[in-house]
Write a protein that binds this DNA or RNA. Structure first.
Length: 803
DNA sequence: CTTGGGGACCAC
DNA sequence: TGGTCCCCAAGT
């Protein structure tokens, strides 16, 4: 018998290795590496991934696998291999690496049930539980738990009356439809029709229908059109005149949408210069990484589209990554418009089933292009010709939980295998990427002017301290107010951008300034309008908003509603004539509302679009001539070495929304720290200056791109032990690395307690430590195996958030 | 002498 | 991760 090595769905250190199973003869021809299988594991049944088929095993007592879950592998060879690479580079469990590559729908769901043992009747059971088994012979374990039946059930199971069964289930079923087709030519069908008994009126009617429409037809449609019933069709199927088949159908999220077809636009000479090396790389099948640095509105997307065109012409495939928030219908339309049905879209707005169907299209090679957020980098193509990462600097490309990968790294790894180019596009490249381009690791391609020579908008920075001194206590500076008013008169549109951080909706006492914190986590609770409650977004703690302040008993305790709501109210007071569309989590919650709000704005149903991060990207409407940033510095003072970079990027992105077409654009940035270089330089939109300035800071403080980072976080219920264990780790690391490395810690995490567990961390900054991975593995081996002390260790290599 | 809770160990 | 086995402490 063949033997299959299987990675089982149990994420622990001890099970993070292949387990061998015998392949039953009936599956001998079927089982292949990359398939999901159901295997017995201890007393349960669980899902696993076959990584290898072999003929021998060191283990003597092998068990047989139960059954395959797929007819064809869900992971191809390359992806299986990529999984190993992911495991090595991010130090995660293999099972997490494989699961990350597949749509969530393919992650198994487990059910535990209690059934009557074979040959047993419910009468054998104690009366108290008989009723549960009268009609249905099985009882869900959760239900038993809720009813407090566990111990009695266990007793009966021990006596042999009941048995516990485990079921591995698919999360989403393939959507099927029944299709009926004739099994013979029209002529033969006619002969058969006449042979039918004269009383088979209905059957004749159905066959008659097929004489006119000999093509396969959906059962539902057939029934309606031929005015027949399922019984009739079944009779004909049994007579072998017709056939009835299940066919897989896709849920098409874009089914009823018409895409305006677009053709390649003539390139400007700057664009032509930039696309040339990319096309050359595609042509010569050479792996290269390009950093496409192009100011907002410089036509990067057209470069992407025409590069993809070339790749498709070569019979190869393209992956396009776009940050989740800019994966707007507008963006999708550009790709669907150019490549039509050859495009699959993967983003979080789709249901699990829809995502699965898009993924299936990729797997079955029915599409050539996938446009999607981070996880789309694992699209199961086998002939990749280009990988494009738009808005390369976006932090959402880094996954914050296991596997802690960066899509850019995965892209480069895959592109190496396929000998194809990677294009990183941005108007504000990350320092890491730009530095690599400077060192010629990446090839820099620059688009320095906007298409049709539109000037960049003029930017004015307003010092809000001055406003305060002049007696203006509102959140709108006089300048911004004047300009908003002006735009309304001119019937032009404005965009107001509110940085969410700092305006988050916490609950605060207006008398003493007391902020309501989570009792389990050291973090303020966020206000939720539904039911007027406050929630902790780390541990799920929930409570009513107190009537009075717990500190000073003042009744002036209130929530600071989502910043945008407040702005909207104030706008209503000072500019009552303005029509405002607000976009934030509250107004875009429902599916499709995001799209609808934007459509309304585009159609001129409002003068002002007010929103958070989600409006910073991709908006491209001709009538926008003013962009206002209400408070530029809210994210500047976060404890994050990238906060300056993020601020600069965000301000530049938002500014880029204005004046993209005929009308010139203006930008107003309000701030309390106008002298900060990231704000000042965002004002002049001077990336080069910002880059140099920020690089100096990074060098000075030993941060990327000069140093690499590794963040080790320990959590424990007991403050003393977490500190002392972190200390041990710090000392251990220190003893193992060269003296070039900087080791910080033990230090409390920026969120020092989550869910009653204290969090301490150790930050390693290093330039070159060839043995570091080995050292880190050693730490994980130590702590992930030691279950006794309840200490949890997590390691983030190249972290983005230092929390 | 039973019961139940907690920790160590195991799973091809 | 879930299960079982084993030990210990409290309860009938």
């Amino acid at each position: 018998m063949k033997i299959a090595s299987v990675i089982v769905d149990v994420p622990t250190k001890q099970t993070d290795r292949p387990f061998d199973y015998l392949v039953p003869d009936e599956w001998d021809e079927v089982i292949q590496p990359g398939m999901r299988v159901i295997v017995p594991f201890g007393p349960r049944k669980i899902q696993g991934f076959v990584t290898e088929i072999k003929t021998e095993s060191e283990v003597k007592q092998l068990r047989e696998m139960i059954e395959p879950m797929d007819l064809e592998p869900v992971l191809n060879k390359e992806l299986l291999h990529l999984g190993e690479w992911l495991t090595e580079t991010t130090l995660c469990f293999k099972i997490f690496a494989y699961q990350a590559m597949l749509p969530a729908a393919l992650k198994a769901k487990y059910e535990k049930k209690v059934k009557l043992a074979p040959g047993m009747k419910e009468e054998c059971l104690p009366e108290a539980i008989q009723s549960f088994f009268i009609n249905n012979n099985s009882l869900d374990w959760d239900k038993a738990l809720k009813n407090g039946l566990v111990s009695i059930l266990q007793r009966e199971a021990a006596k042999g009356f009941l048995e516990v069964v485990y079921v591995v289930k698919e999360r989403v079923k393939k959507k099927q439809m029944k299709v009926v087709s004739p099994l013979m030519s029209t002529a033969d069908l006619k002969i058969e029709m006449e042979r039918l008994p004269s009383n088979a009126e209905k059957q004749k009617q159905v066959l008659h229908f097929f004489l006119d429409h000999p093509n396969p037809i959906e059962l539902r449609q057939l029934l309606a059109e031929a005015n027949a019933s399922t019984a009739t069709v079944k009779a004909l199927v049994e007579k072998k005149l017709l056939s009835e088949e299940e066919m897989e159908v896709y849920r098409d999220p874009f089914e009823h949408r018409i895409f305006e077809h677009s053709t390649p636009l003539p390139l400007t000479s700057a664009q032509a210069d930039v696309i040339e090396p990319i096309l050359a790389s595609i042509e010569s099948e050479k792996h290269e990484v390009f950093l496409l640095y192009g100011v907002t509105g410089s036509g990067k997307t057209e470069i992407y589209l025409q590069s993809i065109q070339k790749v498709i012409e070569k019979g190869e495939e393209a992956i396009v990554l776009v940050p989740e928030i800019s994966l707007t219908p507008q963006m999708v339309n550009r790709f669907k418009g150019r490549f039509g049905d050859l495009v699959a879209v993967l983003h979080s707005g789709l249901s699990a089933g829809e995502k699965y169907d898009e993924w299936r299209k990729i797997q079955r090679k029915e599409v050539k292009v996938v446009v999607g957020a981070r996880s789309a980098i694992f699209a199961p193509f086998e002939n990749i010709g280009i990988i494009i990462i738009d808005e390369e600097h976006e932090t959402s490309y880094k996954q914050e939980d296991m596997p802690r990968y960066h899509a850019r790294d995965v892209a480069i790894e895959r592109a190496k295998t396929y000998h194809c180019p990677v294009v990183l596009g941005s108007a504000t490249p990350s320092l890491e990427s730009f530095a690599r381009a400077q060192k010629k690791v990446y090839q820099l391609l620059t688009l320095s002017s906007r298409m049709n020579e539109r000037p960049l908008p003029s930017v004015e920075i307003v010092d809000m301290r001055e406003e305060l001194r002049a007696g203006n206590r509102s959140m709108f500076s006089r300048k911004l107010f004047e300009m908003l008013k002006d735009r309304i008169e001119k019937k032009q549109q404005s965009v107001l951008f509110l940085n969410k951080r700092g305006h988050s909706s916490f609950v605060m006492c207006r008398d003493c300034g007391y902020v309501v914190n989570c009792p389990n986590c050291e973090i303020s609770l966020t206000y939720h309008r539904a039911g007027s409650r406050m929630k902790c977004h780390y541990c799920g703690y929930e409570d009513h908003i107190p009537k009075a302040c717990p500190e000073c008993s003042s009744e002036y305790i209130r929530y600071f509603g989502s910043g945008t709501q407040k702005v909207e109210e104030e706008l209503g007071k000072i500019l009552p004539e303005a029509r405002v569309i607000r976009m934030d989590v509250d107004t875009t919650g429902r599916k499709g509302s995001h799209e609808r709000l934007l459509k309304d704005f585009q159609d001129g149903k409002a003068d002002i679009l007010l929103g958070t991060q989600m409006i910073a990207k991709g908006l491209d409407f001709p009538n926008i001539t003013l962009v206002g940033v209400l408070s530029a510095d809210t994210m500047l003072h976060l404890p994050d070495f990238r906060s300056s970079e993020k601020t600069f990027q965000l301000l530049t992105q938002v500014s880029g929304r204005a004046g993209r077409h005929q009308l010139p654009g203006e930008v107003v940035i309000q701030t309390y720290t106008p002298e900060h270089y990231s704000i000042e330089l965002a004002g002049t939109q001077n990336y080069a200056f910002f880059y140099h300035r920020e690089m100096m800071m990074r060098k000075l403080h030993h941060y990327p791109p000069f140093y690499y980072l590794v963040l080790i976080t320990l959590t424990h219920e007991n403050l003393m032990s977490v500190v002392s264990e972190t200390e041990k780790i710090v000392n251990f690391v220190r003893s193992q690395v060269s003296n070039q490395a900087v080791i910080l810690g033990p230090a409390a995490s920026p969120i020092p307690r989550i869910n009653n567990r204290y969090r301490y961390q150790c930050l390693i900054k290093y330039k070159r430590e060839p043995h570091l991975t080995r050292i880190l593995k050693k730490i994980l081996d130590q702590y992930q195996t030691e279950t006794k002390n309840g200490l949890q260790v997590s390691i983030d290599i190249n972290p983005f958030i230092l929390m």
